[in-house]
Write a protein that binds this DNA or RNA. Structure first.
Length: 528
DNA sequence: GGGCAT
DNA sequence: CGTAT
DNA sequence: GCCC
């Protein structure tokens, strides 16, 4: 509120307003509960900046610090808590005195000019353009090779490249995107993901992957509405059927893509990468927090807490012995993690389902079932298996009988959670859910996550729809549904006017009820 | 400036 | 808060 | 962060 937005130089006459306010440092990862409001953050919280005051006067350092805060960035009190370090030093040996050797490879070391360039352009400028020292020889070359050639070493291949090459751009885009001819109906510009077909991989997938890096960072740092905005923006781009490479300015006409993301789209297609994604990719703090969330029961909040309390490895998390009220202990979760990281191929989803359904058939013949989740959306592999079973309404506690049988046969290694059986049948529909870890026979003792859902046939359609995803598709079908006077969940559809549960025996019945064109499961891939 | 799935 | 989609 |  006190500083002007004009570029500020370092003339000695700058004893005015901004430098009078005290600087606040924040070394923890995560968005503070009462985050400072910035109309448009040029530096997001993914830039944690430390200023080396070695060669700067106190006043210069303070000025730079205020500029960081003014631009929406976070100041750290130590170099190791930062991912970007500003220094006026240029001699590698002198800089090395401030940087822990372990940190040298991952920190961006920039001159103060970087910050001024950011302020001038109102954009996050690539810190490598203001690198103070070349990081030592082979190490730098290796690092750049890893981080950049992994996706696109210079700039993504543009359609105009093809035209310049003299080739025709009318070919179906190469890559694994679904044939456009399979598209169930044309793209439309809508804010509802459930109304636009979204393929498994889209024509702008490299851009979507870049935005997903920012989305994931927002999730891990607890910036939830920013997270949602990125999720919806990348979802909107995923459904857009034309390449944005020629005309990145088209992006902000897509519903869900606003000013900020449109700028990032432009940056991606003109410079070959999104700078913020590049910074996040090289941030070891984010990578560490993300790894903690691989443990069952540890989400962004728990992972961040662990990190901010000093944890840097799984061993540290185990050592904390934090009493997370979770079904799986940290040690058990850690023990089976290597198995749960192994993708489940489609044929194994099918064989596990067949085994379970054979057992169920002996208990209650005639149930229907659908493998849902990513499998149903056409993914080549998944990391868990979602089986939705439909049973006649009269049957009770089917899931629990099956569960007992599976346990007796030693198929269940862990019960992550299981709904309590409903003793009173009454008039209520009841959907039973079990989250299990299963060790299928003849699979080398691999642990597999299996979710079992048992729904009465009257709501089977809602259950299948609710467990097929993707997440953005689910959220938007709920938003749309509410606008039409219903409440949707996997346990059924309720008419809000009279609170009556409507019969939804098939997925089609749900789409019809909501006045939505049926979306084939393979076109519900609205997430990155 | 409210709302953002259940 | 974490998990499921 | 974006839409209404």
């Amino acid at each position: 509120m006190s500083s002007s937005s004009a570029p500020r130089s370092f003339s000695p006459s700058t004893a005015d307003a901004p430098s009078l306010a005290p600087l606040t440092f924040q070394d923890r990862i995560g968005v503070p509960l009462h985050a400072t409001r910035h109309s448009s953050r040029v530096l997001s919280q993914s830039t944690r900046i430390h200023i080396l005051n070695d060669k700067l006067t106190d006043d210069q350092a303070r000025q730079l610090g205020h500029l960081v805060v003014h631009l929406g960035g976070q100041l750290t009190s130590t170099p190791s808590a930062a991912n970007i370090i500003i220094t006026a030093l240029t001699a590698p040996k002198r800089i090395a005195k401030h940087i822990h050797p372990d940190d040298a490879a991952s920190k961006f070391l920039v001159s103060p000019q970087w910050l001024h360039h950011v302020q001038r352009t109102g954009l996050l400028v690539d810190p490598d353009e203001y690198a103070v020292t070349r990081r030592s020889g082979t190490k730098r070359a290796l690092d750049d090779h890893q981080t950049e050639s992994a996706q696109h070493s210079k700039r993504p291949r543009l359609d105009s490249d093809t035209l310049l090459d003299g080739h025709n751009a009318t070919d179906t885009p190469s890559g694994p995107s679904q044939a456009d001819s399979e598209r169930p109906f044309p793209w439309q510009n809508t804010k509802f993901a459930c109304k636009r077909p979204s393929p498994l991989k889209c024509i702008n997938q490299a851009l979507v992957d870049e935005l997903e890096v920012i989305h994931a960072e927002r999730r891990l740092t607890g910036d939830s509405y920013s997270e949602m905005a990125y999720m919806r923006a990348l979802s909107a781009i995923k459904a857009y059927p034309r390449s944005l490479a020629n005309a990145p300015s088209q992006a902000d006409k897509i519903k869900g893509v606003g000013k900020k993301v449109a700028l990032l789209v432009h940056q991606f297609f003109t410079e070959g990468r999104i700078v913020e994604a590049k910074i996040i990719r090289r941030d070891p703090a984010i990578a560490t927090i993300k790894s903690f969330t691989e443990l069952y029961g540890i989400g962004p909040v728990g992972a961040r807490e662990a990190y901010n309390e000093g944890c840097r490895s799984f061993a540290d998390v185990l050592g904390k012995g934090r009493s997370l009220a979770t079904a799986l202990s940290v040690s058990e979760s850690l023990r089976i993690l290597p198995d749960l990281r192994r993708p489940i191929p489609r044929h194994e989803c099918e064989s596990i389902t067949e085994m379970i359904m054979t057992m169920l058939d002996a208990i209650l013949p005639g149930c229907v079932h659908t493998i849902c989740g990513g499998y149903r959306r056409g993914k080549a592999q998944s990391y868990d298996l979602d089986i939705v079973v439909g049973h006649p309404r009269a049957s009770r506690a089917v899931l629990h009988s099956l569960f007992d049988k599976m346990k007796r046969q030693g198929l269940v290694s862990h019960v992550v959670s299981i709904s309590t059986p409903q003793d009173d049948e009454a008039t209520d529909v009841h959907v039973d859910v079990a989250h299990l870890v299963v060790v299928p026979p003849n699979s080398g003792g691999l642990h597999r996550r299996v979710d079992l859902v048992f729904a009465p046939e009257t709501v089977y359609g809602a259950a299948v729809l609710g467990y097929t995803g993707s997440i953005v598709f689910e959220r938007d079908i709920r938003v749309w549904c509410r606008s039409r006077g219903y409440k949707f969940s996997f346990t059924g559809v309720t008419r809000l006017a009279d609170n009556v549960v409507v019969d939804t025996p098939t997925e089609e019945s749900v789409f019809e009820l909501f006045g939505l064109p049926f979306m084939p499961p393979r076109w519900r891939n609205c997430d990155a």
